[in-house]
Design a protein around this nucleic acid. Structure first.
Length: 378
RNA sequence: UCUGGGGUAGUUUAAUGGUAAAACGCUACGCUGUUAACGUAGUUAGUGGAGGUUCGAUUCCUCCCCCCAGAG
């Protein structure tokens, strides 16, 4: 069974150092959990993910349920053996796909709204390709047009078969432009689903409940209290927190103030470089984010000089390493001109090298923050 | 040398007797629990050359140049 041991609490903020013990080893927190949706960190082998200092990965229930199906993975000995990753693993419940393949897809939106929209999602409204019901969500697959049903029972059943160390309750990630009525109903549904998930609570896996409520402070508080009162092993925090950073911090603080100190907290889908110090100081232990891997495949490298678009031709004449201050093998051995060449020539190795560097860079940064908490600086 | 096919954005192709469309490229921007080696936008030609027919030619005709294939 998984256990969380707080090691040190900051004097200056809510930041805390901890150890999350799982049957597949320990996670030193705070920790980034890179995204391995389809049981792989895209472009990397599991060995490379370890070399990039990844302590844990998060795979996806919805996508693995569709392909290859949890039966295949269970018969392969579970997700760890299947993907040759013997460190801690999480699976997301599919709750995010309720948004990303629903209203998110309909309107081309991300979960964090960049600008105000002239309309809101109202109570009773449904996305085009899926139907959200009390029992769960009917998805129409973009892959083959087939209908898939995922509700709290189904999600937990699949996640048990996959066998990750930490699994999440099935929730609805509500659209960022939902009106208060929609948000309220969605939250009530997510709470009912949370209780359903607990009925099927696994014995060897750690089950996290998920706090929702959008950028509405009172709903967030209510949700944090509700989820905290249930016998979950940890708390996930999902959805949107507000359209700007100060709002995000305020909402996050509201939630964390309600959470029990002894349970680990995972922030779902947040982790832009500039967010990381903020969320750690807010008291988050683990968080997952696609940014380092996703941006890498779009040519963006995160460095001590900031974000570099390595697909631009200007780097052809630059013989420097990606980041002089970085100790990763990419920065030790490869130059910017070559990385740019690989990206522009559409050579897949370019994507791998950037992915590796970005993960190493993020993980090193977080390692430094852990050390700073340890020394009492943060 | 003969026969046939063909010369249209940087590239590969499309189109029509009424002043040219797309993909790729290039440039910019976007992308926070990944439908994402992706998305959006912008950019670029006056249609091999010269002449002719026509109100109007990239389109039809003549000659020339170049490329490809086959034959000698």
């Amino acid at each position: 069974m998984v256990k969380f041991y707080p090691v040190k609490k900051s004097r200056w903020s809510q930041a805390r150092l901890g150890i999350l013990k799982t049957p597949h080893g320990e996670i030193e927190t705070p920790c980034l959990v890179p995204v391995a949706t389809q049981a792989v960190v895209k472009t990397l082998t599991s060995e490379e993910a370890v070399a990039a200092k990844c302590q844990a990965l998060i795979a996806n229930t919805y996508h693995l349920h569709q392909q290859p199906g949890e039966g295949v993975i269970k018969r392969a000995g579970g997700l760890h053996q299947f993907m040759h990753w013997d460190r801690p693993l999480m699976t997301d419940s599919g709750g995010f796909q309720v948004f990303s393949l629903g209203f998110g897809k309909d309107l081309g939106l991300n979960k964090i709204l960049k600008k105000e929209l002239p309309f809101r999602v109202k109570s009773g409204q449904q996305p085009k390709l899926l139907n959200i019901t009390e029992a769960g969500v009917h998805f129409t697959s973009f892959r083959d047009g087939k209908r898939y049903f995922l509700g709290p029972k189904e999600s937990i059943k699949v996640q048990k078969a996959l066998g990750a160390d930490i699994i999440f309750a099935f929730d609805e990630c509500p659209p960022p432009h939902a009106d208060r009525e929609y948000l309220k109903e969605s939250l009530a549904r997510t709470h009912r689903w949370a209780k359903e998930c607990l009925k099927l609570r696994p014995t060897r896996q750690m089950l996290y409940g998920i706090v929702q409520g959008g950028s509405d402070t009172s709903l967030r508080r209510e949700s944090a209290q509700f989820i905290s009162a249930l016998p979950f092993n940890g708390i996930g925090i999902g959805g949107e927190f507000g359209h700007n950073k100060s709002q995000m911090k305020k909402t996050l603080d509201t939630v964390i103030a309600e959470l029990p100190a002894h349970k680990p907290r995972h922030l779902l889908g947040v982790g832009h470089l500039e967010d990381i110090p903020l969320i750690i100081k807010a008291g988050i232990d683990t968080f997952d984010c696609t940014v380092p891997t996703h941006y890498a495949r779009h040519g963006i490298a995160f460095t001590s000089q900031g974000r570099l678009d390595m697909a631009k031709s200007l780097w052809y004449k630059d013989k420097n390493p990606l980041d002089k201050k970085c100790a990763c093998f990419v920065c030790r051995g490869y130059r910017r001109n070559y990385l740019t060449h690989l990206l522009r020539a559409k050579e897949i190795t370019g994507l791998k090298l950037l992915t590796f560097h970005n993960l190493f860079f993020f993980n090193t940064l977080i390692e430094k923050i852990r050390n700073n908490i340890k020394r009492g600086y943060v």
